[in-house]
C-alpha cells in the first residue's frame, strides 16, 4: 500500500497547475485596489484571503490581503516600533493612515504560479515561502485562477480512494 501511495504522489508531481486550477476565476474572493479597506475586513470574515486586482475589468493582479495583513492594520499603534528605515510599513496601520484603501494594507509582493507549472514545483514554492495558495497568472499578469494546498490535498485523497 505504501508503494501505491508513493506512485500516486509521483503521478501528482508531474501534473500541471491547470489540472488543479479552479477555472472559475470569478468565484475567487476578489477586491479592487481602490476599494475602502473596510471591504477587506468584511470579505475576510469568511475567506482566508482575497486577491487584489487593479479592476475587475482587466483582472490585473496587484496584491493579496490575508488576515495577518489586517492584523497589521488593526494593531494598537503603541505596539509599533520605529527602527531606522522601517517607516513605510508603519503607515499601513489604519490608526495612522486615514481613509485607508485596500491598496494600503495589502501585501504587494506576490509569489505566483503559471498555468503549465509542474505541481512538484508548486509544492516546493509553497514550502519555501510558507504559503498555502498561489495565484495563477498569465504572461500579462492577469489573474486566471489559484492553486491551493487544500486542492492538492483533496486531489491526493481522491486519487488514493480511487486506487486503494
Amino acid at each position: 500500500m505504501h508503494e501505491k501511495i508513493r506512485n500516486i504522489l509521483k503521478k501528482m508531481y508531474d501534473m500541471k497547475v491547470s489540472d488543479f486550477m479552479d477555472p472559475r476565476a470569478w468565484d475567487m474572493p476578489l477586491l479592487e485596489k481602490d476599494e475602502p479597506v473596510s471591504h477587506a475586513f468584511f470579505m475576510l470574515r469568511s475567506n482566508n484571503h482575497a486577491w487584489v486586482v487593479e479592476s475587475e475589468k482587466n483582472m490585473k493582479l496587484v496584491g493579496v490581503v490575508e488576515r495577518t495583513d489586517l492584523l497589521r492594520a488593526m494593531l494598537p499603534p503603541d505596539a509599533l516600533t520605529y527602527a531606522y528605515g522601517s517607516v513605510s510599513m508603519k503607515i499601513k496601520n489604519i490608526f495612522i493612515k486615514k481613509d485607508a484603501k485596500v491598496d494600503d494594507v495589502m501585501t504587494h509582493k506576490l509569489i505566483t504560479a503559471e498555468k503549465d507549472m509542474l505541481i512538484r514545483d508548486v509544492m516546493i514554492k509553497m514550502k519555501k515561502y510558507e504559503l498555502e495558495r498561489l495565484p495563477v497568472v498569465d504572461k500579462n499578469g492577469v489573474l486566471i485562477g489559484e492553486v491551493t494546498l487544500k486542492s492538492l490535498i483533496i486531489h491526493f485523497t481522491r486519487l488514493m480512494r480511487e486506487t486503494l
Binding site: Y82, V87, S88, I91, F95
Partner: peptide
C-alpha cells in the same frame, strides 16, 4: 523619526495631519 513617532502616539496625535505628514516625510528625509 522614532522618538517623534513615539511621542506623538503617546500624545494621541500621530494620526493627525501633522503626524501623518511627519511620518511620510521621514521616508524621504533618510
Amino acid at each position: 523619526i522614532g522618538v517623534t513617532a513615539r511621542t506623538m502616539m503617546d500624545l494621541g496625535v500621530l494620526s493627525s495631519d501633522v503626524g501623518t505628514a511627519s511620518l511620510s516625510a521621514s521616508v524621504m528625509d533618510d
